[in-house]
Simulated scan of single mutants.
Amino acid sequence: MDLAHRFPENPLLSPKDVAPSADNLQVICLLNPGVFKWQNKIYLLVRVAENVAPQEGKLFVPMRSEADLLEIMELKLDDPDLLSADPRVINYKGLDYLTTISYLRLFSSDDGRNFKAEPLGLHGKGYLERYGIEDCRVSQVEDTFYLTYTAVSANGVAVGLRTTTDWQTFLSHGLIFPPHNKDVAIFEEKINGKFYALHRPSSKDIGGNFIWLAESYDALHWGNHQCIVKTRANSWENTRVGAGAAPIKTEKGWLEIYHAANQDHRYCLGAVLLDLNNPAKVLARSETPIMETKESYELNGFFGSVVFTNGHLVNGDELTIYYGAADELICGAKFSIEEILKSLVYLA
């Protein structure tokens, strides 16, 4: 059951719309924007992935040096130590690297459909963000914006936090979840005096890619971790599930839009409803996706058959989701919150 009303203007942003961050780089793809409103405008904090222009027989691996300068590792495609079956990740001499380096770029709009680039760009800093920063969720709690993002390095995939109150100055808090973790969405309201966040720890050896809940008194130190949403066998979400943006407060509970993938790496969107006072309690969940990959720009691209969101806006019953399509383009779609709630299957 696809409940999405896609923007006829899709895609809203594509790589050709963005100038690279350095002369020797090109923009490969745009992905998965965080979304927020500020001073009567709509903003997207887009993940921009870049690399050197391809050359025959060669592969380039961009990363940031200890001095936070860009450095490029050049490899030969026929190198016997190179494993490069995945367009996103390679393995060289036993170590994993990304084929692109990502940073966060700001775009603004008056109407939510036509976006222009703003000067602000946030790059990875330090050895724990050497391979870049990705997929930022933006949560506003009172007067502070909390930016949770994936921080990638040779040490693993972790979650960093930066905060701002004016979108001019940013305070970096380092890693708030160590590897392997991602998909952190902080609730935009405290519950019983505490911050809550969804996150996704995972292991290559045991367990799975499930959605967890954590709580905190300061948004920096997190505890009381609980696994609340798991993958389901023989379904559209049998391989991984992960949180989207901050949960939406409704009369029936906290509504979370999440992404899920199957064994064929097909990404769809689903929804789960959590108890208002105890968000560790799952009340209802999608049996089928609320949004599936079906348009050509979702099926074909850098990594096809993907719709992935970590940003939305709420206006009454209207939910506007901005999403990455095929790991290459930025698109938009509208939903009815009431329709999503009615589509859920309540748990006994």
Rank of each mutant, 00 (worst) to 15 (best):
R6S: 00
R6A: 00
N10R: 14
L12I: 13
P15S: 12
K16V: 13
A19C: 08
A19N: 13
A22Y: 06
A22Q: 14
L25P: 03
Q26Y: 05
I28A: 10
C29M: 07
L30E: 00
L30F: 04
L30T: 00
L31Y: 11
G34V: 06
G34L: 10
V35S: 07
W38G: 04
Q39F: 00
I42S: 12
L44M: 06
L44H: 03
V46R: 02
V48G: 04
V48C: 09
A49G: 10
E50N: 09
E50T: 09
N51F: 01
V52A: 08
A53R: 12
D68E: 14
D68S: 14
L69A: 13
M73F: 06
L75K: 10
L77G: 03
P80I: 02
D81Y: 01
L82S: 05
L82C: 05
L82D: 05
L83W: 01
P87E: 06
N91H: 04
Y92A: 09
G94S: 06
G94V: 05
D96E: 11
L98Q: 12
I101V: 13
F107R: 08
S108Q: 11
N114W: 01
F115N: 03
K116Q: 14
H123Y: 14
K125D: 01
G126Q: 09
Y127A: 09
Y131L: 15
V141Q: 03
F145E: 04
F145K: 12
Y149W: 05
A151D: 05
V159D: 03
G160T: 09
W167N: 09
S172W: 00
G174L: 10
G174T: 05
F177M: 15
E188S: 09
I191W: 02
N192R: 11
A197M: 08
S202H: 12
G207T: 09
F210Y: 15
I211Y: 02
W212R: 10
W212D: 07
L213A: 12
A214C: 13
W222V: 02
N224G: 04
N224F: 04
N224P: 00
H225N: 12
Q226N: 04
K230S: 14
A233G: 05
S235Q: 07
N238A: 10
T239E: 11
G242E: 02
A245M: 03
K252L: 11
K252E: 15
G253M: 04
A261V: 15
N262F: 03
N262Y: 03
Q263V: 06
D264E: 12
D264N: 12
H265M: 07
N278A: 08
A280S: 15
L283N: 08
R285N: 13
P289M: 09
T293C: 15
K294T: 15
E295K: 10
S296C: 04
S296G: 01
G301P: 01
S305R: 15
V306T: 15
F308N: 04
G311I: 02
H312F: 03
H312K: 14
V314L: 11
G316A: 09
G316N: 09
G316L: 06
D317G: 03
L319Y: 02
L319H: 04
S336E: 02
I337Q: 08
E339F: 00
I340C: 07
L341H: 06
S343D: 06
